[in-house]
Design a protein around this nucleic acid. Structure first.
Length: 214
DNA sequence: TTATGGATTTCCT
DNA sequence: GGAAATCCATAAT
């Protein structure tokens, strides 16, 4: 395999159902360039969110200034602020005013490890650098200032490169993490065997289901 | 206008 | 295993 990513993903490839876009994103490489340097992450875990009929989506109850990007063209970055202290990043899917996005849950840092560790001292020397949605944005230094950035534009500070031939058989699916609604929809996808895949935690205020991974 | 809870992480017991 | 930290959108007065 090549040592660094080559082909940018195109907006047309991402203008599909979030579930299909999620599969495209597994193994894809997200690159964030800042004055301090560049960090690259190979995505190993994602979740699909669809507006309208998906009660877990931020778009379920209509368009707001915060989620407006999700209603826009595919291939843009949707960044939102949660729990008063963390950011989460999504890649917008679909288009034509139909809201949809794929949450970037976790990845493996493949370049700029030192810089990422300086941003996440707690994870120094571990595989926890981008093992979680907010950890990933911290490692890449993404914040709401990146909301709406076009990931398919070579001139953007944040870019998305196509996956380079990972084994499709390694893809696993299951319920989304931290979501109380629509837990029966297996819209979380990850690459089997990757150390950077986050642990499953059920959303809402209930206890984990019997037999769930602990 | 006030109240509530969240697509989380980290630190304490 | 449990709770705190802490901003914003949405729901309820």
């Amino acid at each position: 395999m090549a040592g660094h990513p080559v082909r940018l993903l195109g907006a047309d490839e991402l203008a599909v159902d979030p579930v299909d876009a999620a599969h495209l994103l597994l193994g894809a490489v997200l690159e964030s360039e800042t004055p301090a340097g560049t960090v690259r992450v190979r995505l190993t875990e994602v979740e699909a969110y669809r507006g309208g009929d998906d009660p877990a989506s931020h778009c379920y109850r209509g368009k707001t200034p915060r989620n407006a990007v999700m209603f826009g063209p595919a291939g843009h970055l949707y960044v939102y602020f949660v729990y008063g202290m963390h950011y989460c990043a999504n890649v917008v899917a679909l288009t034509d005013g139909v809201p949809g996005a794929v949450l970037l849950r976790a990845g493996e840092v493949i370049a700029g490890r030192e810089l990422a560790e300086s941003r996440r001292p707690a994870a120094r020397g571990t595989s926890d650098l981008a093992r979680g949605p907010a950890k990933l944005t911290t490692a890449l230094a993404l914040d709401r200032g990146h909301d709406g950035v076009d990931l398919t534009d070579p001139a953007s500070p944040v870019r998305l490169y196509a996956a380079e031939g990972h084994d499709p058989a390694a893809v696993r699916s299951g319920p989304r993490v931290g979501v109380a609604a629509a837990v029966d929809v297996p819209w979380r996808f990850w690459l089997a065997g990757e150390k950077s895949v986050s642990a499953y935690k059920r959303g809402g205020r209930r206890r984990p289901a019997p037999g769930a991974t602990t």
